[in-house]
Amino acid sequence: MIRRYGDTPETGQRYRLRAGVYAILPRDGALLVTWQGEPHDELQLPGGGIDPHENPLRALHREVFEETGWSIARPRRLGAFRRFTWMPEYKRHAEKLCHVYVAHPVRRLAAPTEPNHTALWVDPGVALDVLANDGDAAFLRAWLSRV
């Protein structure tokens, strides 16, 4: 069974399954994260949805680049969690199946191309305190306990 984080699903509400990939990106004692502005205004692990017919690793590389402008190497899957949420940008409720990886940020190639996203380097302890998603924080906490 995959652990659930966040809000309990609303009874009678239909949720569309949305698989996604997210990355813990450590380098030189800091973590590369993304600040997503409107409509969320929150700190997140970089990542997002897997498009139809897209390989999860390809989606991970694409999403990290779109949200941070960085290329990554050596992704390794840590596990998955799920959460039920309202996605205002898509105007729908979703059951997000979140696959979490750890990867090495290699090089900044460009500014983020995803609207309202800003790439930030933060201390891992700060990230634990301010990540908007409890599932992201749980995976980061578990990964930090092993390094």
Rank of each mutant, 00 (worst) to 15 (best):
V122L: 15
T85D: 07
P52T: 09
V64M: 02
G37E: 08
P105S: 03
D134M: 02
A19P: 11
Y101I: 02
L131C: 09
G69N: 03
N55Y: 13
G125Q: 15
P9R: 12
A23E: 03
L97N: 05
R62D: 14
R18W: 00
H99C: 05
E95W: 10
V122A: 10
L17S: 09
R14F: 12
E67H: 10
Q13I: 02
R14E: 11
G20P: 04
P105E: 02
R27D: 14
P112M: 06
G79R: 09
R77N: 08
A110N: 14
E95L: 14
R82D: 05
E10C: 06
L128Q: 05
Q13A: 06
W121A: 07
A59N: 15
P56G: 14
R4H: 15
V64L: 02
G47K: 00
D136H: 14
A111F: 10
V64H: 00
G135Q: 03
G29F: 07
A19L: 03
K96Q: 10
R3S: 10
A110S: 15
I2H: 13
G12V: 11
L144G: 01
V122P: 06
P26N: 08
D7I: 09
I24V: 11
G12A: 14
L31R: 15
H93C: 06
R14M: 10
L43H: 15
R82T: 03
E114K: 02
A23I: 01
R62M: 11
E66P: 06
H61S: 10
A119Q: 12
V147R: 11
W121C: 03
N55W: 14
F84T: 11
R107N: 06
L31N: 12
D28L: 09
I72L: 06
V122E: 08
L131P: 01
T118V: 09
Y90I: 03
S145W: 01
V100A: 07
Y5Q: 04
L131K: 05
L57G: 09
P124H: 13
L97M: 08
V102N: 09
E67N: 10
G48N: 09
T118I: 04
P75S: 07
Q13C: 04
P56V: 13
T118S: 05
D123N: 14
A132W: 08
V130T: 14
P52S: 11
L131H: 09
F65C: 09
L32T: 01
R141W: 05
P112C: 08
W70M: 01
V64F: 03
E89A: 00
A103P: 05
T113R: 00
G47D: 05
Q44D: 14
Q36A: 04
H53W: 15
Y22D: 02
L31A: 11
F65R: 12
V126I: 12
I24D: 03
R74V: 05
H104R: 08
E38Y: 09
A111P: 07
A59S: 15
A80I: 07
Y15L: 05
S145Y: 00
M1L: 11
R107C: 02
